[in-house]
């Protein structure tokens, strides 16, 4: 428990540092981001918007840096991340909350699926070396060395296109109103199939290879021989003794990969024009949309930190050796 609290305190400190950096970077940048934005969008900004940008970047000059910093935290606690520039006058928090479900839905589910399938295959391949599962490895290793986005491009070129059942872009059929009905959900699933398959195929084999190699390492441990000598069933030795120990490094890897759900698959979302956070970030970068970028970075920071904390907790639960002062 003490260990967890220590970790939690550490992550809180990291969060504070990340947010503070997030605050200072635009302010120490040479030049003036607001005026460059204004000049790029002549006539399209209301004076309110300019003012809000100035407030956001601390350019309303009446405040000291310290007061700005305090104000920034106050805004943050109210969930106010400023106005998005690309989607003006939508607030950044709203832009993110609209795109986040898409990313979490697509990448989250595929990350979990690829971990589960890959790990299960790895257990099989490592336990029965030379079996048909093991012979899949060269193929999956090849696929994992292919970048996500390239696989996505190939998938679009081969499978999507005029007359194909697979849509090549977007998160749902244009014209549908987002709602919890079967038209919309069916369309969303249909649109997510290709990107999901792309991510699944290229990320699964990493888990499989890792799990397989750990299984092979663990299988030569003395306690596995002891388990066999005890006359335990093959299933019990494979799962409760071998896989249970081989899983440990993979689990922390998995928890960390959860942190990259939000920002990690930018390229897939770009290739498929998927309305997720990554695609939003891409658009934000193109339009010099600092508030949006800052907001998305904040979300990514938080999710990476939460994933780290999850990894700590998972390790604590799974490996008794980490529970020092239990």
């Amino acid at each position: 428990m003490k260990f967890l609290l220590q970790r939690f305190a550490f992550y809180l400190f990291t969060l504070w540092a990340a947010i503070t950096l997030n605050f200072f970077i635009p302010r120490v940048m040479p030049g003036d981001p607001v005026s460059s934005l204004i000049s790029k969008n002549q006539g399209r900004l209301t004076s309110d918007a300019i003012h809000s940008l100035e407030v956001l970047f601390g350019l309303d000059k009446k405040q000291s840096l310290w007061d700005q910093y305090i104000g920034y935290w106050q805004q943050l606690f109210k969930g106010d991340l400023g106005m998005s520039f690309t989607f003006f006058p939508t607030p950044v928090s709203e832009v993110i909350s609209q795109s986040l479900p898409w990313t979490v839905g697509l990448v989250g589910i595929t990350t979990i699926l690829s971990f589960l399938i890959g790990t299960a295959l790895g257990v099989g391949a490592g336990w029965k070396r030379g079996s048909w599962i093991d012979s899949l490895l060269p193929a999956t290793t090849f696929l994992s060395s292919v970048p996500y986005f390239w696989l996505g491009l190939v998938a679009i070129a081969l499978l999507a296109g005029p007359g194909s059942w697979f849509p090549s872009s977007g998160g749902f059929t244009p014209g549908l109103v987002p709602a919890w009905d079967h038209y919309f959900i069916g369309s969303a699933i249909n649109h997510s199939l290709l990107p999901a398959a792309t991510i699944l195929i290229s990320s699964m084999s990493g888990w499989m290879l890792g799990m397989r190699n750990m299984m092979v390492t663990v299988a030569s441990e003395d306690y596995i021989t002891v388990a066999h000598a005890k006359g335990l069933s093959d299933k019990r030795v494979a799962f409760s003794y071998a896989a249970r120990n081989a899983l440990l490094p993979n689990v922390s890897g998995f928890a960390l990969s959860l942190g990259f759900i939000v920002g990690g698959t930018l390229l897939v979302e770009i290739v498929f024009s998927y309305p997720g956070v990554g695609y939003q970030l891409f658009q934000g970068v193109q339009a010099y949309d600092y508030p949006l970028m800052q907001g998305i970075f904040l979300v990514i920071t938080i999710s990476v930190l939460v994933a780290n904390l999850l990894a700590d907790v998972a390790y604590l639960l799974l490996d008794p050796r980490t529970r020092k002062s239990g």
Binding site: E221, T225, V226, A229, G231, S240, N245, L318, D319, P320
Partner: peptide, 22 residues
């Protein structure tokens, strides 16, 4: 499997690694 441990059991040399750590 039925014969093992019930008729012949073994104590291995790796005292440190013979027990499953988890």
């Amino acid at each position: 499997r039925k014969y093992r441990w019930a008729e012949t059991s073994i104590v291995f040399q790796g005292a440190m690694n013979s027990l499953n750590p988890v």
